[in-house]
Amino acid sequence: MANQTSPRHVAIIMDGNGRWAEMRGRPRLLGHRAGAKRVREIVEACPDLGVEYLTIFAFSTENWKRTQEEVSGLMRLFRTYIRKEAQDLLRRGVRVRFIGDRLRLDAQLRRLMDELEALTAHNTRVNLTIALNYGGRDEVARATKRLARDVADGKLDPEGISDETLPRYLDTCVLPDPDLVIRTSGEARISNFLLWQSAYAEYEFVDTLWPDFTEACFREIMGRFGARDRRFGGIKSA
């Protein structure tokens, strides 16, 4: 398998917002606001780097365990981000999709998500996917339920199910699998993010906290990716 110069699809676990704020003696929500601003810079850098798809982990199914103050603040931040960035995303040719279980999100936020997806549906310059109330195990469980219903309804032959079947039921069914997953803040775990899709992704764990993750950091990682030999279970390239 020949090397790819650039990853087509990059997924990012944007970790370290709260710690960034606490290190400055400020409320954790200030760090989340700083992190939201950083997203714009990374999205803008994608076309020049050959990245067609960017998926960011904004809020996990486990994040509901945080304090009510922080969760409520994050939900306000998501609503504000959509309202503030919608027209700019449209002008810059960014198509936005959301993945995750929307049922637990408030009705106003769900409406804004639907509107942003519809507004940017014809954009093609960058595909930005935002994982909101997302968990890899939860996604697979929801996909399995849909698959099971199709079997029960006679729409799917169980004998014909293969490892190519389940992806059609995942939230990411219209996306290519990620080539590269980046996690910031020095933590070296995948935190229930894109479990099925990342089976053959390359990983980068960096110490930088997300609000400090600049375009220069992104470019440096892209350069390292180009030197990797992606074999997908095969032998080393000549």
Rank of each mutant, 00 (worst) to 15 (best):
R110I: 12
R110N: 13
L112Y: 08
M113Y: 08
L116V: 01
L116N: 05
E117D: 09
A118Y: 00
A118L: 04
A118V: 09
L119R: 15
T120W: 07
T120K: 12
A121C: 09
A121R: 15
H122E: 14
N123Q: 08
T124D: 15
R125E: 13
V126R: 07
V126S: 10
T129E: 05
T129A: 13
I130G: 14
L132S: 12
N133Y: 04
N133Q: 12
Y134Q: 04
G135A: 05
G135H: 05
G135I: 06
G135P: 15
G136A: 12
R137D: 03
R137C: 09
E139I: 15
R142S: 09
R142K: 08
A143E: 05
A143N: 08
A143M: 12
T144E: 00
T144W: 08
T144R: 01
R146C: 11
L147A: 13
L147C: 03
A148Y: 13
A148N: 08
R149L: 14
R149I: 10
D150C: 07
D150K: 08
D150P: 09
V151C: 14
V151Y: 11
A152Y: 03
G154L: 10
G154Q: 07
G154A: 05
K155M: 12
K155S: 13
L156M: 15
D157P: 11
D157F: 01
P158G: 10
P158W: 12
E159F: 04
G160N: 11
I161F: 00
S162A: 08
S162H: 04
S162R: 14
D163F: 00
E164I: 01
E164C: 09
L166I: 15
P167Y: 02
R168L: 11
Y169D: 10
L170T: 06
L170M: 10
D171M: 09
T172P: 00
V174S: 14
L175Y: 10
L175Q: 15
P178D: 02
P178Q: 02
D179K: 06
V181Y: 04
V181H: 07
V181G: 12
I182A: 04
R183A: 04
R183T: 07
R183L: 12
R183P: 06
S185V: 09
G186N: 01
E187N: 07
A188T: 00
A188E: 15
R189D: 02
R189T: 00
R189V: 00
S191Y: 10
N192A: 10
N192S: 11
L194H: 00
L194P: 09
W196R: 07
Q197L: 08
S198F: 00
S198E: 02
A199K: 13
A199Q: 13
A199D: 05
Y200N: 11
Y200M: 04
A201D: 05
E202D: 13
Y203T: 04
Y203A: 02
F205C: 03
V206W: 01
D207G: 10
D207F: 05
T208L: 14
L209A: 11
L209Q: 04
L209F: 07
W210I: 11
P211S: 01
P211D: 04
P211A: 11
D212Y: 00
D212I: 15
F213S: 06
F213D: 03
E215R: 13
A216P: 04
A216K: 15
C217T: 01
C217S: 12
C217N: 15
F218Q: 09
E220S: 15
R224S: 10
R224E: 06
F225Y: 14
G226T: 03
